[in-house]
Structures are given as structure tokens and as C-alpha cells.
């Protein structure tokens, strides 16, 4: 078991190195990406100033400006994780499936899921974490008080859970691509649905609240970590989120394995 783990670790470092070399080869791209990343962060924050600015007292019901900034900070963090570590590999595996080159991956002597999930990283997206740190700093200045240590730990735990849930949905999308042809734009769908996570949960009411909590758990991903940072997260929410994320990961792995068994290569 520990041997397999060591091998996975070595594999990960090789793949990361390859991605780093690719990034170094296209230096102009790297700079352009950094600039564009900055634009996207500004585009994420700007609507907030419109919603909270202006003469009349407006804003998301139940959430002050600083509190909403915390949600946006969590959103930018997770967006960086998606764009940097999850989506690039997703696009590459969808390409493999369409062209039939997935066969070569399956032939390699390691778990195929590990191989396809670590295929490609966009390292420049780490800049998003810096943007998020700035947004968090602004938020706590606005709130006039810092988070408690417990709150930070809870928030970190929730962000890890969120990453796991995002990864599980990614795995489900890839499994779909085994059945439906030419769905390479599913990665766009993935990121555009995640866009809904940039606002506090109180925005979603009625049936949307249920969907975004239980079906597509966006509420768990950004609103709960923000509440943890504010020190008002009940332990039961953390427990339920952990159970949910674990169950989701299990289902995703099972679906992946079963669709892999049905994979017949291109033209099969």
C-alpha cells in the first residue's frame, strides 16, 4: 500500500514538473494569463460594489458587504483550484476520449483515474490564491475583526471538502463523455454552473436553495466556509458536509469504474 502511495507521489511530482516546463516554454502566454486572471477577479468583485453601493441601502438580504466579500474570497479560491488543477485535466481527458488516445493512458501500469486527474496543471492560476488573500484581507478590514483560529480551521476543512466535491463532479462529467460523443464543452458547463457560488446562499430561495444545497452543493462550497470564518458555523453543518462529500466521492469513483469497463475506444 505504501509503495503504491509513494509511486503516486512520484507520478504527481513528474506531472507537475511537466506542467511547469510547459508554462516556462510559453512565457508570453504565462504573462497574458496573469493579466487576464486579474481581469476575471475584478469582474467577480465589481458587481458587489454595484449591489452594495449607491444611495439607497441595498445588498443581499442578511449579508453585509464584508460578509459577502468573504463568500467572494472563497469563490475566487475555489475558482483558482478548478481552473488550475481540475479543468485542465478534464479538457485533456475529454480530448483523449474523443480521439481514442485514452487507450494509451489505460495501458500504463497505474490507476487510470490518478493518471488522467493529474495530466495537466495550469500553475499560473495559483495567482488566484493571492487575489483571494487580498479579498479576504479587505473583508476582515471591512468587518473590523479577524477570524478565530477555530473558524479558520473549519473554513479550511470545508474548502478541502469543496475541492473533493468539485473533483467528484469532474469525474462524473468524464464518465458521461464515455457515452455521449462531442461533449467537450461540458467543461464550460461545469465552470458556468459554479459561477452561481459567488453569492451568499440567501440569494437562492425555495427550490433553488434545495438544488444548490443538496443536488449541486454550491452552498456548502462557499457560503459555509464564509460562515465558519465569521464564527457562526454549527458543527452539525461541518459533519453533514463531510458525510456528503465522502458519499459523493464514493459514488463518483463507482460510476467512473463502471463506465471505464464499458469504454470501447474510439470507433468501437
Amino acid at each position: 500500500m505504501s509503495g503504491a502511495l509513494r509511486r503516486t507521489g512520484a507520478l504527481l511530482s513528474v506531472q507537475l514538473k511537466a506542467s511547469a516546463m510547459l508554462a516556462l516554454a510559453y512565457r508570453l502566454d504565462f504573462v497574458l494569463d496573469l493579466v487576464i486572471g486579474l481581469f476575471w477577479t475584478v469582474a467577480a468583485v465589481l458587481p458587489l460594489f454595484v449591489v452594495y453601493g449607491g444611495p439607497a441601502s441595498r445588498g443581499v438580504p442578511g449579508w453585509s458587504f464584508g460578509e459577502t466579500l468573504l463568500v467572494v474570497g472563497c469563490f475566487i479560491t475555489l475558482q483558482a483550484v478548478i481552473d488550475g488543477a481540475i479543468s485542465p485535466s478534464l479538457s485533456s481527458v475529454l480530448d483523449h476520449v474523443r480521439k481514442g488516445t485514452l487507450d494509451f493512458v489505460l495501458l500504463k501500469p497505474h490507476d487510470a483515474q490518478v493518471l488522467v486527474s493529474t495530466a495537466r496543471f495550469h500553475l499560473w492560476r495559483a495567482a488566484g490564491l493571492v487575489h483571494a488573500a487580498i479579498v479576504f484581507a479587505l473583508a476582515f478590514r471591512e468587518l473590523g475583526q479577524g477570524p478565530s483560529l477555530l473558524g479558520v480551521l473549519q473554513a479550511l476543512a470545508l474548502l478541502v471538502l469543496a475541492t473533493s466535491m468539485l473533483y467528484s463532479s469532474w469525474l462524473l462529467i468524464v464518465s458521461v463523455s464515455f457515452y455521449a460523443v462531442k461533449v467537450d464543452n461540458l467543461s464550460t458547463l461545469f465552470t458556468s454552473i459554479f459561477d452561481a457560488a459567488r453569492w451568499p446562499a440567501s440569494v437562492f430561495r425555495g427550490v433553488f436553495r434545495l438544488i444548490f444545497t443538496f443536488v449541486i452543493p454550491l452552498v456548502v462550497m462557499t457560503t459555509l466556509p464564509a460562515e465558519a470564518l465569521l464564527g457562526r458555523l454549527p458543527w452539525s453543518s461541518l459533519g453533514a458536509s463531510t458525510l456528503g462529500a465522502a458519499a459523493f466521492a464514493g459514488v463518483a469513483r463507482a460510476v467512473w469504474l463502471s463506465s471505464l469497463r464499458r469504454y470501447t475506444s474510439a470507433g468501437g
Binding site: 443581499v60 458547463l189 459561477d195 437562492f204
Partner: peptide
Amino acid sequence: LSTTMPLVMMLLWTSI
């Protein structure tokens, strides 16, 4: 279906 942004913004602004 990927054009979800207007719908999200709709939910946001109606809640306000």
C-alpha cells in the same frame, strides 16, 4: 445550458 450567468444574476437581484 452553460449560459447560467443571467439566471444567477436574476436570482441575486430579485432577492434584493
